[in-house]
Amino acid sequence: MTLKEFWHRLGSPKWFYQMSGPWQRAFAILAVLLIVVGMAWGLAFAPPDYQQGNSFRIIYVHVPAAILAQSVYVALGAAGVLLLVWRMKMAQLVLENLVGFGAWMTALALFSGAVWGKPTWGTWWVFDGRTTSTLVLLFLYFGLYALRRAIPAREAAGRACALLAVVGVINIPVIKYSVEWWTTLHQGATFKLTEAPAMPASMWAPLLVNVLGAYCLFAANLIAKLRTAILRQEQGTAWVREWAGREARP
């Protein structure tokens, strides 16, 4: 199968449903393994920080949540482009089913940041560039959630959400570079693409495991929701009826 064929098939809900069962299982198993190993490693075995002591360990929740919060939004923006330009059916399903996960990750990043900020900074919240732009990200997720429910016609709601998702992606570089453009209370980036992290491997390795686990959780969650949504959307079609008959048979 060529890449172009794969691309065309990915746009077909039926093909996606029939292929994605094993993908979902694989990602779910990987997610559980990586997150259990990463959390135990980070929370119990990684060394504490010389300044912050054990409150440093909040990084193992905070950074994966913050990275996912932004990655999910970029994925929503990509789905928005696919829907607006190519009218891809699957993109509409992604837009409808990914908002909740992203909003929860953003909320977790803000909450864990507050829990971390109280003992280290001395305050649980401050309106600096990084925290404020992340709060804006949460409101963008709320906006996507509300916009879809405000427009009764599904197709129109999908396009409106797609536009908001695409335009909202502008906030992502603002979040990323906020700590460089302005003076902030928030420290610089933990992981940079161009340099090694400024901490020893005993600290960043468990963090990397947690981030990978979070991405697997994202994939497993998205595939599971897409599969349910596909069955609901295609319930009248012959292949779903045939599938349901086959499943029901003993």
């Binding site: 920080d49 010389y50 300044q51 900074w121 610089g188 400024a198 901490m199 600290m203």
Partner: peptide
């Protein structure tokens, strides 16, 4: 604090 975390 900065992002240079370090074991004691």
């Amino acid at each position: 604090h900065d992002e240079n975390y370090m074991p004691p």
